[in-house]
Design a protein around this nucleic acid. Structure first.
Lengths: 240, 240
DNA sequence: CGCCGTCTTGCGTAAACCCGCAGCTTGTTG
DNA sequence: CAACAAGCTGCGGGTTTACGCAAGACGGCG
């Protein structure tokens, strides 16, 4: 049994290496990659390998890497190991996991025990293991309680990218008015108004920009989500 | 001689601990804090301590902590140790360093040697040590070559927060038109137009929102800068 | 002092944005 | 099937943005 570790930080890499050795005596080979690109290549070379993957990496982030790896071999088991439980990451991951694939998501702040347990559960028992904190977000982002619909999230990303209403309409095949409807819906959910008016006319906010800011501060969006969205946008621009 | 380590991640914390022991045999006490708040308190208790500080921490980030520490004891020597060299961080740091204070900025990707050397230079020799990469940014952000003026940066932050032109005018004591002038200036520098028009009328951008996105992608802004700015904004809103 | 560049401000306009109102299409439920 | 909720769409209008044009204000510099 082989395990591939994809992780930026040398300290964390060697820590993972040890953890894998300790938790999985049946594992005979551990390979390391220090960024997403190298990770993809090694995953291709060692087809049977299970993967432990960091999410935020400079060169090519974990979500990108996981996506291409899963595209080639959907049955690959991947354990995501991340510092953050931002909704943006969680959403990003659940967007790309293939049907029925075994995967995991544990936070770097988890104890040694938790990590080792997760390693065994996923790689040996083929179970999904998702940290409680992360799980909470996942529920919210799927269930409609309080969380965001896909269409709301979509339009959030679109204005975050800086598209005009018209451009969004074209991209999503909607009428201009519908786009604006969704925007209002988004403004509602994000509570842009409360912070906005207070009741003085003075400190008014630009709703569109404010919505993005709030989303950022609430970690509905983050750098890597923006980066991905920007790439998709460019793609779309090119083909249109 | 005492050294205080303020760092989120337990792995990095113990690594730093070792590095300090190895580089500074004259250091008899090493104290650790795992977030900004705890760091501030320990800094108060151990007045003579030199500090190694992580920048991005969950609870209270390094810049905040450093600011209050320096406010109480401006001669404190602080070595910032960070994963990133985003302009947003660099700018944030140079904004708060007291006149003539000895400080340092080294990246986590630096070699052991570099770190140890920096430790000795700052804590023993009272020299400023700033990683080459970081230094580059610093030049740019101070000199006007290609970089951003303070007033440009200021307005960037303001629209990122989601303020309207009018609100910005009020906050910065400018006329509405001046605010808009600065905005245009900003749009120029950020090259919002190039990506915008291409030459089709189709894929138009909302300049204001797009500018923020570009700034984010170029790391002129980041989460912690936004967070700080938001706090300042709230403060201003309250008193006005 | 007069010339010049940079910054500020006002006026005016076209476009984009925010949104209430109202008619339509769906899918759901009793 | 009737009734109802939810989403899409057009219309209309009030507000905000983006920006050209031009008139001052301020600070060097020959």
């Amino acid at each position: 049994m082989k395990v591939l570790i994809v992780e930026d930080d040398p300290l964390h890499r060697s820590y993972l290496h040890e953890a894998v050795n300790a938790a999985l005596p049946e594992c005979d080979t551990v390979i390391e990659a220090e960024n997403g690109t190298a990770g993809e290549k090694l995953a291709r070379d060692h087809k049977s390998a299970h993967i432990v993957m960091d999410l935020q990496m400079a060169n090519r982030n974990g979500i990108e890497a996981a996506r291409t790896i899963w595209k080639e071999r959907p049955e690959t088991r991947i354990l995501f190991w991340s510092n953050y439980s931002d909704e943006a990451y969680v959403r990003g991951v659940s967007r790309i996991v293939p049907d029925g694939a075994a995967y995991g998501y544990v936070l770097k702040s988890a104890s040694d025990e938790r990590l080792k347990l997760a390693l065994r559960s996923i790689f040996i028992e083929s179970q999904c293991v998702i940290d409680r904190e992360v799980r909470g977000l996942q529920q919210k982002s799927l269930g409609q309680t309080n969380g965001f619909t896909d269409s709301e999230y979509e339009i959030l990303v679109d204005i975050a990218l800086g598209l005009t209403d018209r451009a969004i309409a074209k991209r999503r095949s909607l009428s201009l008015r519908s786009v604006q409807n969704r925007l209002q819906q988004l403004y509602d959910k994000l509570d842009v108004y409360q912070t906005a008016g207070d009741d003085h006319e003075d400190g008014r906010f630009n709703l569109r920009a404010r919505a993005v800011t709030i989303a950022f501060l609430r970690k509905l969006l983050n750098y890597s989500a923006l980066e991905r969205a920007e790439a998709e946008l460019q793609e779309w621009l090119d083909e249109k």
